[in-house]
Nucleic acid binder design. Structure first.
Lengths: 127, 127
DNA sequence: CGGGATCCAGGCTGATACTG
DNA sequence: CAGTATCAGCCTGGATCCCG
């Protein structure tokens, strides 16, 4: 019973409609409050933001710091363990760019396949 | 409009319940017929096998070779482009192992979190 | 043999309203 | 401010049957 193929566990971490966006925000901006994340990703609902953050927290990718005060204040940040994903995320990103170019070459650069990346989503949010 | 974060496209490729298993099979065994894949992954239905293979084919990860004869014969294999994913898949795998160990250390090695990897699935299939 | 077509159940996600 | 609770819609995946 060899169990040397664990890359599905990585998928578990990243799977979820908003997790890449959230991680990108936190990687980029460092510590962020709940409301800051909401503002940075306008399309997300509180429910989903909370849910995805909790899952990332369970995997020790994101740290949640609660200030017990009124009004409440909660800060999120990437854990040290989470930062160890940085290199593979870059690798994934690089290969993604390579792959996109490859597909364009195969099928042509027509519209229709321009899936919105989370960066686009952020750009849209910035308008 | 910077579009330098394309790692979600990689996720698109890998997302799908059976894609990692299928890719692992083809990476390991080279060229395989449709029925061979079925036998290697008994739990999958024809519908899902076909569907996931078509998606991988669209992304030029898997090549589909049809022999026009009766009875039909179709062979699948990893494309050259697909092989270029090899290194990141290993990287993902390595980090996955590291992460699993990390979680066990955090939460204890109790049962309950032992998600079945596709390798386990293959092992089960071999019995 | 290698599918395609159809129907269905469950889970994920979104919208909305409420709360300490 | 930072959530929780509830309900509804959609999409993924599974089961079954049919076809060249």
């Amino acid at each position: 019973m060899h169990t040397d193929c664990k890359f599905e566990t990585v998928l578990e971490i990243l799977v979820g409609k908003w997790k890449p966006v959230i991680m990108f925000q936190l990687f980029t901006n460092g510590t962020m409050r709940f409301s800051e994340l909401q503002r940075a990703i306008p399309a997300i609902t509180k429910k989903m933001l909370t849910q995805q953050l909790r899952e990332l927290e369970y995997h020790d990718i994101v740290h949640r710091k609660v200030y017990h005060q009124i009004p409440p204040k909660v800060e999120y940040s990437i854990t040290e363990h989470g930062r160890s994903m940085g290199t593979i995320m870059e690798a994934l990103n690089d290969w993604g760019r390579f792959h996109t170019a490859h597909l364009n070459q195969l099928y042509g650069e027509d519209e229709g396949r321009q899936s919105e990346t989370f960066v686009d989503a952020i750009d849209n949010a910035a308008e």
